[in-house]
Amino acid sequence: MIKKSIALILIAILFVAIFFTLANDLPFGDNRTTTGVSDKYIYHGVNDTGASNLVTAIVVNYRGFDTLGEVTVLFVAATGVGAVLYNMGRPAGKKRKKTEASLIVRTGSRILFPMMLLFGAYIFVHGHLTPGGGFQGGAVIATAFLFKYVSDTRYHIDHNKFTATESVVGMTFALVGIMGLLLTGYFLFNFLPNGSPGELLSAGIIPIIYVAIGIKVGAELTGILDNMMEVEQ
């Protein structure tokens, strides 16, 4: 009882703290809060990188090396899930025991699946222009495959193809970095022309990298979902 009341009091204090911080110290939509290095990004970001979405400019251009690490972390996570669930086996010929989805859900997935894929592609292709990018678009693509799994109990992806795609796009990311190293002497240097901000073909290497990240994240998340779905009880 005492434990619980202490917890509740702590939560109340936390609420007051968060709320007054948000209400007083962080003015919504005002750049009064920017200090130091963020000024540099805000005032020079568009000219430096050619990307009109500053978040993307930071994530892929200024901090591109961190993003490579992040993608690696996700890859390790997907591999880990696969490794843990591998020995739980999937005996050949044994069907997943489940109720078949109804005709409405099945037909709906047939129609919506390509549209969801295209929407995910739209998000990561326009990563440097509008909010969104590789990670978000990849997640949308993974939900498209999840819908496929929910609607059809016998559906499963072709593991070899997915692994191959994932490796190829992962290598593309690294190759773009190495080309920067060869041409200019810096890893992941933006060696392509910036173009005019706001157009699709602008911002140098950012679109290439974000397309690679989008496909890679989509394939990895789908692989995780597939591993989880296939395990027998």
Binding site: N53, L221, M228
Partner: peptide
């Protein structure tokens, strides 16, 4: 989104509310 970070909002909605919920539900079912 209210704090003007639409990128993060999208990632949170797609991954936090979509994919991770699905993964948890599948795990609970197993």
């Amino acid at each position: 989104y209210v704090l003007q970070a639409p990128d993060v909002a999208m990632a949170e909605a797609a991954i936090g509310a979509g994919i991770s919920t699905a993964v948890f539900v599948i795990a609970i079912k197993k």
